[in-house]
Each structure stands twice: as C-alpha cells, then as structure tokens.
Design a protein around this nucleic acid. Structure first.
Lengths: 150, 150
DNA sequence: CCGAACTGTAATGACAGTAGTTGCAGTTAA
DNA sequence: TTAACTGCAACTACTGTCATTACAGTTCGG
C-alpha cells in the first residue's frame, strides 16, 4: 500500500484514446509506448488487461497491433480503471482490531459501508466520461490551436 | 505509488471514534493502540497529523492523552482522510507524454479534470458521514447485542 | 521457407511508501 | 524523584510500481 493508485489507469486511458483516434488502423505497442514516453512491454502488459476485460483486441505477428473491441462511446473511464486496478482505493485496517474494545469490534463493518460508498461515488463519476469524449475534446483543442491568430 | 491508499484513514477514523465514544476523559496512545492491535508510536504519528489539522489535541506528561478538539458531529470522515493522506488518489502519468503525439500532448490536461472530479465525488461522500454518526451506530449495535434473545 | 515485425510473458533491479519497532528527549503529575 | 505520558528520529522488513532485458510464439512478405 502506498499513496495513490498506480498510473495504470492513466496509461490505459491514454492508450484507448489513441486507439480511438486512429481507429482505422491498428497501433503497435511501440507506437503507443512512444506517445507515453515509456516502453512497449509496459504497454503490452496494460493492454493485456484491457484485452482480458474485452475492451481491445490484438492481432499477433507481423503487421499486427491493437484495436478497440467496441465503439469508443461505449468505453468509459471506469471500464479502463476497473480493468487495470486491483484492490480497493481506501485501505482498511492493517489487521483485525481488538474485539475487547467496543469501538474495535464494530468499526470495520461501519467503515466498510462508508468506504464502499465513497469508492462507488468515484467510480460512478469515472463512468460518465467515455473515450469518445476524450477524442472529441482532443480534436477540439487541436482544431483551436490550428486557427490563425486574429 | 501503489495499489490503494494507506490504512492511515482507517486508523484515524478508528481513533477519532474512540475519542468521541469516551469523550469525558482523555485516551492515551497506548489505549488506542490496544484497540487497533497496533503500537503507540504509530498511533501518535497519525494523531499528530490530526492534531496539526485541528481535529484533536494532546496533553503531555503524566496523565496526559488525547481529546477531540471539536464536537464529533463537526468532524467528518473527509476531515480525517484529508488530514492523513497526502497525494491524489488516481495517479497521473509517470512522466510527460510525447508532445509529438496529438493525444500525448493533450491527454494530461483532459485527465486532470476527470480525475479531480472523480476524487471530489469520493471526498464529498466521505464528508457526509461524521464521527458522531459512527459513535451512534456503534452504540446502536452494542445495545442490540445486549438485548436478551426471546 | 526464412527473416522481419509483431505479441505474450517471465524475471530482474531500482526505487518509494507503509507498517512496525526501538530508543530517547521532553513534559507533567503524584 | 520517579512514573506516565507525548514527540520524534532512525531503522528494518515488506510490498508494489515502473522500467528493462530476454526470449518464446505468431504471422506476413519475399
């Protein structure tokens, strides 16, 4: 346990956004790694999780690469998050508290409800944005930058 | 970065609930550590953060210990969370993506908005439950257990 | 059928953060 | 003066992340 989740969600969303943006062709893990300033193995690991979750698929061998397994507007940030992150956000007690204590023997059950609700609130918000939204915003920004200054 | 936040929030909330439950007297870090099945130094570290956040105060020396600095109904789980957890929940990119890539040069700003919103949703939910709520529920459960079976 | 270009995966190392512990200085009350 | 506290630094053991190397398997083009 440490501070914050891994950056796998950010990497997964980045990769999905690239696949959606250049949907007409497959992208290799090396191309995605270039954009991430990372390396192909890391990308394949994360895309592997996304593949297991049914979000993307890969073709092997020469000329192979990655594509979205369903439309970008049907893939939310929560889908990506869920596919690559493991445990709960808010860690529970490191060990069982004392059953001798009135608070100790009840706190875990109470906290479980609160923490699950809180995590669900976060996940629900992630579920409201799709990869298609991110692609659209990316295109909007790029178009705006391309405008001549007046 | 790692999977899940530290358990400091859970420990902090546990300690605050104990302080609220036995509000008439101070509790020592050793007493709280007993309930947590942990040790006093860890408890003092976390209560130290809560003290810095103005949630509790300590009296030093013999007979000293910890008390809430304000009413339990004015301390939310978010207050505890905020006092002891450092960084963002959802980690961002490990390094700057490539500016050569249309997606790479825009994704960070887009993700920042999404992730901050998602984190705020979680925090907002944590802010709706107070320590007083947890004490009340603890007492309810204990009272229920004390009822004779019929 | 060979070789190049891919994916898939295991193993490893450097690093960072957590949880737990020891040790000790400072403070206060009996 | 001593016992019971807090405060804090230092240290260990452990775990997870990120990056990298190495290599096996797959597919296409010539």
């Amino acid at each position: 346990m440490a501070v914050g989740l891994s950056s796998r969600s950010a990497v997964a969303i980045h990769a999905l956004t690239m696949l959606a943006r250049w949907g007409e062709r497959t992208l290799t893990s090396a191309e995605i790694a270039d954009s991430l300033a990372s390396n192909p193995v890391l990308v394949r690991r994360i895309l592997g999780s996304l593949r297991d979750a049914g979000l993307v698929w890969a073709t092997e061998g020469r000329g192979g690469g990655w594509s979205l397994a369903r439309p970008a507007r049907e893939i939310t940030l929560y889908d990506a998050y869920r596919a690559v992150e493991a445990g709960p956000i808010l860690s529970r007690h490191p060990h069982e508290p004392s059953s001798q204590c009135e608070v100790g023997r009840n706190i875990q059950a109470l906290l479980e409800v609160e923490f699950q609700d809180a995590e669900r609130a976060m996940e629900e918000r992630l579920g409201r944005t799709t990869i298609a939204h991110l692609v659209q915003r990316t295109l909007d920004i790029e178009r705006e930058l391309a405008l001549p200054t007046r």
